[in-house]
């Protein structure tokens, strides 16, 4: 399919793809904002949730934070490589980012398995409902990001569509940002 001429114009000075990604991020901010805002409202109003929150695994959460921060590093290194036109190198860094996402999800699945098997299910009480919903929505965005990143990396490997490396990177950084806030909310505030 031919790319329309529309895509090549840039009256704002921002390339079309990147402008679109910023709008995506803006709409995601209000989605997560609504969910986390709802959680915060309840959390402030229910100090006794600290009892439930005590059972989250801070080490797992902390390790996952480390993983996501490092994957953000590899994402931005991919961007740096793409800017220099080094497609295969950018693809390699994107692959590392995806690997980080995978490690994140694996740690989370162990974490959740442990918690569920100990009775901390999504219906146990509303703290846990928020915990699984918020982390789950975030995890869904991690998976979606990994899938898209795979396509971008495949193209980058062939030195094609290198501008998309930056774009998927921006999305990935946003996913990291959400986790940067989720981590203290769910794991530290006890």
């Amino acid at each position: 399919m031919m790319r329309p001429i529309a895509t090549t114009r840039s009256a704002t000075g921002i390339p079309t793809g990147r402008l679109a990604v910023w709008w995506v991020i803006a709409s995601e901010i209000v989605i997560f904002g609504g969910l986390l805002g709802g959680y915060l409202l309840h959390r402030f109003g229910h100090p006794e949730w600290a009892t439930a929150a005590a059972h989250t695994n801070t080490m797992a959460g902390g390790f996952n934070t480390f993983v996501l921060l490092t994957s953000s590093l590899s994402a931005v290194l991919a961007h740096a490589a793409a800017e220099k036109g080094e497609g295969p190198k950018a693809a390699k860094y994107l692959g590392l980012t995806m690997l980080g996402g995978l490690v994140f999800l694996i740690v989370k699945s162990f974490e959740w398995t442990y918690e569920i098997s100990h009775g901390y299910t999504i219906t146990a009480n509303t703290f846990w409902s928020f915990y699984y919903t918020a982390a789950g929505l975030h995890g869904f965005h991690v998976i979606a990001g990994m899938v898209i990143m795979g396509f971008v990396a495949a193209d980058a490997m062939k030195n094609r569509e290198l501008q998309r490396v930056e774009l998927i990177g921006i999305y990935w950084h946003f996913v990291d940002l959400v986790w940067i806030f989720l981590f203290p909310l769910l794991y530290i505030a006890k």
Partner: peptide, 8 residues
Amino acid sequence: ASVGPLIA
């Protein structure tokens, strides 16, 4: 800008 909280 407004639909996010309702999606949540």
